[in-house]
């Protein structure tokens, strides 16, 4: 498991965290990159582990980052909570260079954590982990009644949907009226 330390998004981490070392050390020294989430905690991740994320992999290939540059400028993911980013980094490290198993039972069971994880994984484009997460979300409604499903996935009722639609129309109407009034004001 990688350890973490507090840092800032712009400053280089004084002593970045270390990735887990595999039993057999690779012959060619591996490159490492740095990422941080909303909490600014910097995580050191190997290039191999980051291969899972199409987004980060694309950023590295497109920007042509050297290890020194990456150390000075960790990839900022301000929209991802620190603990969620930690989970993602751990998963990438655990599955570095390994074929992914058909199921992953180590995903969070709490609904809100899983929700945040799905959003983060979707953003980072980690396809295999997204598939596991979606399976886990789907499993939540197994054997449940429609009312229980509504509660679990917080699906609005028809009446709530209609009310929201009316509200949106009203708001759009007001905005359009405001724009017309502003345009008339400008014309004067």
């Amino acid at each position: 498991m990688s350890s973490t330390e507090q840092g800032t998004s712009s400053a280089a981490p004084a002593e970045p965290t270390t990735a887990p070392e595999s039993a057999a050390a690779p012959e060619v020294p591996e490159s490492f990159y740095y990422v941080h989430g909303k909490d600014k905690v910097v995580h050191k991740v190997s290039a191999g582990a980051l291969q899972h994320s199409a987004l980060i992999h694309g950023m590295i290939s497109n920007l042509g980052y050297t290890e020194e540059q990456a150390k000075a400028n960790p990839f900022p993911f301000e929209n991802i909570d620190g603990d969620i980013l930690q989970m993602v980094v751990d998963w990438c490290n655990q599955h570095k260079g390994k074929p992914t198993p058909p199921e992953d039972t180590n995903l969070p069971k709490q609904k809100e954590k899983l929700f945040d994880l799905v959003l983060a994984v979707n953003y980072l484009e980690i396809k295999e982990l997204l598939t596991y997460c979606c399976k886990q979300v789907a499993m939540m409604v197994k054997g449940k009644s429609p009312e229980e499903i509504r509660e679990i996935w917080m699906i609005p009722t028809d009446a709530e949907d209609e009310a929201a639609e009316k509200e949106a129309k009203k708001r759009a109407g007001k905005e359009a009226a405001g724009e017309t009034a502003a345009a008339a004001g400008d014309a004067k």
């Binding site: 929700f115 997204l130 598939t131 979606c134 979300v137 939540m140 679990i152 917080m154």
Partner: peptide
């Protein structure tokens, strides 16, 4: 957890 708050493709993958 709001299903409709997930991006469109994620909703599809879940329903799948």
């Amino acid at each position: 957890m709001k299903l409709f708050k997930f991006p469109y493709l994620v909703q599809e993958e879940i329903l799948q």
